[in-house]
Design a protein around this nucleic acid. Structure first.
Lengths: 332, 332
DNA sequence: CACAGTTAGGAAATCGATTGCCTAGAAGCT
DNA sequence: AGCTTCTAGGCAATCGATTTCCTAACTGTG
């Protein structure tokens, strides 16, 4: 536990002034190469690391962005964070992750904290139920919404095109020869459930088809998937494929179908949504799923934030396409 | 995008000097209550938030701790983070999360970043394969290891007592009347697998019993669990309970047993490890599991770090007990 | 009324790094 | 030799908040 090393100690060891030391370490000013080297060696020897607070006080930049997740940090936030870090890491910025745990007071507290730390910008994420209210008004720094969208159209929001995901799922099922397709998904009031259902219905309609049964709304759980299997089998709909609103629902459904003696994909083909590794791999057979490319969303959000920080803000919604990952559950 | 408000603007509006404004807002110095109030109102009106960089430059404290996860941020790191935030939040500190993604270079880079940001302390976490090398030598700030442990005995490491978890699992199985117990777990070289297996063997030995079959080492996956079910059934061991090294293994095993016509818990009782919600709830029947109380570990680590920051460092390993969560898979 | 003792609040130093301005000395030119 | 032109590097202001020291204006007392 030594005391921290300051630039004056480096300067003293190198026999120069602090100003010169600063220039040497930052590649600025007009210095003799040997002087520069001497300072760098002194810094190295003492293990000098510049004090970010002092630097940012002077330069006005912290090279840090804040990331506020409104719901608890879960499997959605992590890929978003990783994507954002990738985009920012190249520019040597870091991310300050704050988990507001769905509590508006906590959220405002974190906002204050981030403002006091003078982060260069903020990314707001959260599970997608509805567009959310902007996190603040007239903030002195740019904000980008990722995964979730802001209710204010002028804000920049990077979101997955969930209808596109549904379209890809349905097209894939049609391509492997299925026609009697059902859709089992989460709660009806959930924005994602709505978008995915609408995407499925529209895609079928474009082919002159419709769902084999009305959309089955329920929960985002395996239990609901198992229950839905029973419903589908008992109402005589005779489906040959099910597009599920989430991987968990699909996995439950797969289990329910198998329990009732139906084979996947021979009797019923199955497509999930989220491409969540533990679910698609744990499912038997392995589950075909729609990937929203959360890392890509995080990366794009970070790039838009960087643009805004540099004075070129982007406004409005940026919808990003999904990707279908075919596996055994829809193999021909 | 207004410019940020500084304390001098607040002072000017309140008609006092910056020093007085500072005292007013921090409850220091001798000021008339009305002056204090006037300053507070001015700050409120302008939306003033103190610049953390300027403050920390003066006070030497940042009220921030860094958290470096050596492996990718996963389901282990999140509860640890939440626990740490709970312990630190009361003291109004924030956590800087850095994901080193199992890359030593990235790890050292983050260490430098955290040092340059002058965090008050660092928590190092990671998946537990082996004790790890200390993250740095002679660092100017305290470090606490959470979940993973440091190879240096003098460092403070807060870890789950995995043998204790195994003991609870075995005792529970004995309590519900099982005697022919098998143990199916992850890779033999994995520290957790070793500790859990040893805990199971020792606990049985204390009762004059032993495992019904040698420990089955494999992977931390459902696929291995399913495969292990076949192995157990084919070698004629006739077990009446299986203690699994992870919930994923247990879930796969449950599925394998069911597929072979064995009923859980009637024929075979099952205990998992990790108490991972999607696995224990998705498993049929719901899975009894050992909970390592990761949040508690995060909280304890943060408390130890706070103690070290305040000059009372704790040395050595702190092993924390596990907790057994009984569910249907071991119901009598 | 004079003096000691409080009290409220201002002035200025400080934290560490950056940066614009300035100058001593070397180099180049006639 | 005397002048100009570079060049290398020092000096000091600056960022924003905190904190120590200090003083002016009260208050109370004999």
């Amino acid at each position: 536990m030594d005391r921290a090393v300051t630039i004056s100690q480096v300067a003293a060891l190198a026999g120069v002034s602090t100003g010169t030391a600063s220039k040497a370490l930052n590649g600025r000013g007009a210095l003799r190469p040997e002087t520069r080297l001497r300072v760098q060696q002194a810094a190295e020897q003492l293990g000098f690391v510049a004090n970010a607070a002092a630097r940012s006080l002077q330069t006005g930049r912290t090279y840090t962005v804040g990331m506020i997740t409104t719901d608890s940090i879960g499997r959605f936030s992590i890929p978003l964070l990783i994507g954002a870090e990738d985009a920012l890491g190249a520019g040597q910025m870091s991310v300050f992750l704050c988990d507001a745990r769905d509590d508006p007071i906590r959220e405002q507290y974190y906002l204050r904290t981030l403002l006091s730390r003078k982060v260069d910008g903020i990314i707001v994420t959260g599970r997608r139920t509805q567009a959310r209210q902007p996190i603040g008004r007239d903030l002195p720094i740019p904000v980008v919404y990722a995964f979730i969208s802001s209710a204010d159209e002028r804000d920049c929001s990077v979101v997955p095109d969930e209808a596109d995901g549904a379209r890809r799922a349905i097209r894939h099922l049609l391509a492997v020869g299925r026609r009697r397709i059902a859709h089992v998904t989460g709660p009806e009031h959930h924005h994602s459930a709505q978008m995915r259902a609408a995407g499925a219905v529209d895609t079928l309609a474009a082919e002159g088809l419709q769902l084999a049964t009305p959309v089955l709304y329920g929960e985002w759980s395996e239990a609901w998937g198992r229950q839905a299997a029973g419903i589908l089998l008992s109402n005589g709909a005779d489906v040959d494929a099910v597009f599920c609103g989430s991987d968990q629902v699909a996995r439950g459904l797969a289990e329910g179908l198998r329990g009732a003696g139906r084979e996947v994909p021979r009797d019923v083909a199955l497509v999930g949504f989220d491409n969540w590794d533990v679910m698609v791999d744990g499912c038997r057979p392995a589950l075909t799923s729609v990937d929203m490319d959360l890392e890509g969303i995080g990366r794009t959000a970070a790039e838009m934030l960087l643009a805004a920080i540099n004075g070129d803000p982007v406004h409005g919604h940026q919808a990003r396409p999904c990707r279908l990952v075919p596996r055994a559950s829809t193999a021909v």
